[in-house]
Design a protein around this nucleic acid. Structure first.
Lengths: 148, 148
DNA sequence: CTCAGGCTGACTGCATGTTGTCAATCGACC
DNA sequence: GGTCGATTGACAACATGCAGTCAGCCTGAG
């Protein structure tokens, strides 16, 4: 049991996650630098773009599973850069809504035009079922780690 | 094609990797704090423990797929803490070998006694085949991303 | 209405990771 | 033996993430 194949498989999977996380960040930075962004920023932009009327900073953080402080710092920088704007939140006086500016929208779409071929190229010859299976497993692990 | 199921699957997988990476680091920190370590340090300790006569800093970095500077900073701190020691490298005058001290060995084994039940508990009801499949997929993606 | 607990923003400190640069050493080739 | 490219250590700048704290706003129970 100490060296059960499952244990080794799982630890290898953990290492693979660490590794691919670093590679994804590196690839993301490379793709994003063409439009003056970074990996962390397109993660945030992506969440905002999927919403209709903007999201609060803690809301974005919850969607990403990150701390609100990390998101706040990023939105603050992007607000200075003119990619997002803060709008009054009718449901909450202090917690403003983060919205994409026109420039932010343009950057988001520019990003898509680089990101899509990248995603397609990486998964060219990978069957959909394998992707779905791996995703299910990861989501299952995530669920178990989020509810301790 | 713009919204092909595969593209969405892949992007969901990317998000899952980001999320699980954060959760693994958090869990690792929680497990490691009992023995006075952090996630980053047991990653490094793990690599050293698997070697026989110690490893150079760049060697550890290559094994982890990280920059040597990041590893160097961690080994420097662990050397001050008495977990590792630097030994002369007969094959290279400047590049010393990082070795576990007795204390480092003890910490490594203490970590295993916490890590093993954690790994087992997370994968309790997950079939080995699913683990293996997900690992194969991730390693395939890693391979494609490492060779641009 | 009042007030207690929860949510938010702002700030701080810390850990980790990347990239870039420079000088010293190594190693391989001529 | 000499030379040149690769490797290494040391240092710095920067980006990102977490946790902790504090004060102010919001919400809902009483």
């Amino acid at each position: 049991m100490a060296h059960s194949p499952k244990r080794k498989l799982f630890l290898d999977l953990v290492r693979a996650v660490f590794r691919i996380n670093g590679l994804l960040l590196a690839d993301g930075d490379r793709m994003a630098e063409g439009v003056g962004l970074t990996s962390a920023r397109w993660k945030v932009i992506g969440v905002i773009a999927l919403s209709n009327s903007g999201m609060t900073v803690p809301g974005i953080a919850r969607a990403l599973g990150q701390s609100r402080q990390a998101v706040q710092r990023i939105t603050d920088v992007m607000e200075v850069d003119g990619l997002v704007s803060y709008a009054n939140n009718p449901r909450h006086k202090r917690s403003v809504l983060v919205q994409l500016t026109d420039q932010g929208q343009q950057v988001y779409h520019a990003l898509r035009t680089v990101q899509d071929p990248w995603a397609i190229g990486l998964t060219d010859d990978v069957p959909v079922e394998e992707l779905a299976g791996a995703l299910r497993l990861l989501q299952r692990l995530i669920f178990r780690m989020e509810k301790p």
